[in-house]
């Protein structure tokens, strides 16, 4: 089992409407919503996971995936402005 941390730091705004969808092999592992800056931890089995982030904010948000991960593609830190639309492929 590995622990990963997903953080979202908002900038220049009072909030956001964000949905995080964690998937593995096409199946949903977890769906969560966030309306402000956040820090989540997940304990996961080894494997490859897909984290989809979708939503909107009037400012911007920096989402970072860290922890005992082998790789995070395309980048462990991604910035989004207004439209939050991206994915993290996480290999544990």
């Amino acid at each position: 089992m590995q622990t990963i941390k997903v953080t979202g730091q908002l900038f220049n705004t009072n909030g956001c409407a964000l949905t995080l969808i964690l998937m593995r092999d096409g199946n949903v592992v977890d769906v969560s919503k966030r309306y402000s800056s956040f820090e989540d931890s997940h304990v996961l089995e080894s494997g490859t996971y897909l984290l989809l982030v979708q939503g909107a904010t009037s400012g911007s948000i920096r989402i970072t995936v860290s922890g005992n991960v082998v790789t995070v593609r395309p980048s462990p830190t991604q910035d989004f402005q207004q439209e939050i639309w991206g994915r993290f492929i996480i290999s544990l």
Binding site: N14, G15, A17, Y35, L52, Q54
Partner: peptide, 21 residues
């Protein structure tokens, strides 16, 4: 927009989550 305003967008996101999945 306040945090409460953003929460009110929640149902919109619910509509699109199954499509993303």
């Amino acid at each position: 927009l306040s945090s409460e305003d953003y929460r009110s967008l929640s149902d919109i996101q619910d509509t699109y989550t199954p499509i993303a999945v």
